[in-house]
């Protein structure tokens, strides 16, 4: 909870600062854009959070985004599949990738880093091979499907041309609610948190840790798949060699910024989404505050680092205070019980 307040504070700070420096930041158009990008990156960040909670990592997200996006465009434009069939197919592919990762990591005991690093190379290559490395575009034929990524839902009661919710934001909200309920209200979510902190103890408590881990990898890859569909529809022009490149790093950064520990066992969905929002707002701020484009990475890296350092310091302070409080309580207890 405290963690969410911290990262939320950072988000508010960056927003207020940007808004003051350039009031256009809060223009309807810009808010919609930022919300849309936050949603797209939020979807893949929520997915990777599950894997990070198990203490694992998924480096293949960007390549899954690329493969799914390329496959979708290829199936639609080259193979003439119907939109629902193509979307179902690509999501199925991402599900299969998740199952594959999970099985390799749990049954063969391969390291997640290695498995997903190979995935990163493999799926990128597959995307380029299947599409002959050609850029693919949806042109203007799929405006209906593209509404998933660029459509907006007007808010009842507001004027037609004022703020409307981007469809990806609704998709993110649905995914986030499901994810949060899964993590906090189901026994599997609890299992996930427990095994992320101590897999052995979880197993000794009768939890099928392998199954739970596989579920986490499936959630991650399917989220990347959903993200891939949305990214592809959004940019409308897909370069198999480039779509989604490095997005795993953005997703991991958002998750870590949002309070996930790479050691596992820690993380909240709200935090991760706020983390993704911070990253997007930073990009947006750099652009609209006319900060030179080559400073972009430096600024984002510095902000993430500052966030993580602050978090660590706050955590240490909390541990110390807890210890002091407890000792005080124990001494009071001892004093009250005459020996």
């Amino acid at each position: 909870m405290k963690k969410i307040l911290g990262i939320g504070g950072l988000l508010v700070f960056v927003c207020v600062l940007t808004g003051v420096l350039n009031p256009d930041f809060v223009s309807v158009y810009n808010l919609q854009n930022t919300l849309r990008w936050t949603s797209l990156f939020g979807v893949i960040s929520v997915g990777v959070a599950f894997v990070i909670i198990t203490g694992g990592i998924d480096l293949s997200i960007g390549s899954v985004v690329g493969l799914v996006g390329s496959l979708l465009a290829w199936l639609l434009t080259q193979k003439g599949w119907s939109a629902p069939a193509a979307v179902a197919m690509v999501l199925l592919v991402s599900l299969g990738i998740g199952v594959l990762h999970g099985l390799l990591i749990t049954k063969l005991r391969l390291q997640p880093f290695v498995v997903t690093l190979c995935g990163l190379l493999l799926y990128r290559g597959a995307a380029r091979y299947i599409t002959d490395d050609q850029s693919l575009g949806f042109g203007t034929a799929y405006e209906g499907l593209r509404r998933l990524a660029i459509g907006k839902i007007p808010i009842p009661g507001l004027a037609a041309d004022s703020f409307a919710l981007p469809v990806p934001f609704l998709i993110l909200m649905v995914i986030a609610v499901i994810a949060a309920v899964f993590l906090n209200r189901t026994i599997y979510g609890r299992y996930l948190l427990a095994l992320g902190r101590n897999e052995t103890a979880a197993r000794y408590s009768g939890i099928h840790t392998d199954r739970v881990k596989i579920i986490a990898y499936v959630i991650c890859s399917v989220s990347a798949g959903v993200g891939g569909v949305l990214f592809a529809l959004d940019v409308n022009s897909i370069q198999p060699s480039g779509l989604g490149e490095f997005y795993e790093l953005y997703a991991i950064a958002a998750a870590v910024l949002g309070g996930c520990s790479l050691r596992g066992g820690e993380g909240t969905i709200t935090g991760v989404i706020i983390g993704a929002a911070v990253l997007r707002v930073l990009y947006n701020a750099i652009n609209i505050l006319r900060i030179p484009t080559h400073l972009e990475f430096a600024i984002i890296g510095a902000v993430i680092l500052a966030g993580v350092i602050t978090d660590e310091l706050v955590k240490r302070y909390a541990v110390k205070r807890r210890a002091v409080r407890q000792l005080a309580a124990e001494q009071a207890h001892k004093a009250s019980v005459p020996s």
């Binding site: 609890r190 299992y191 427990a194 902190r197 101590n198 052995t200 103890a201 408590s205 066992g265």
Partner: peptide, 20 residues
């Protein structure tokens, strides 16, 4: 190592086997 998830609450540890 085997008995407890040290970073979790007393409640979460006590209920871990019986959740299912």
């Amino acid at each position: 190592e085997q008995g407890l998830v040290l970073e979790m609450a007393v409640r979460e540890n006590l209920s871990l086997p019986s959740l299912r």
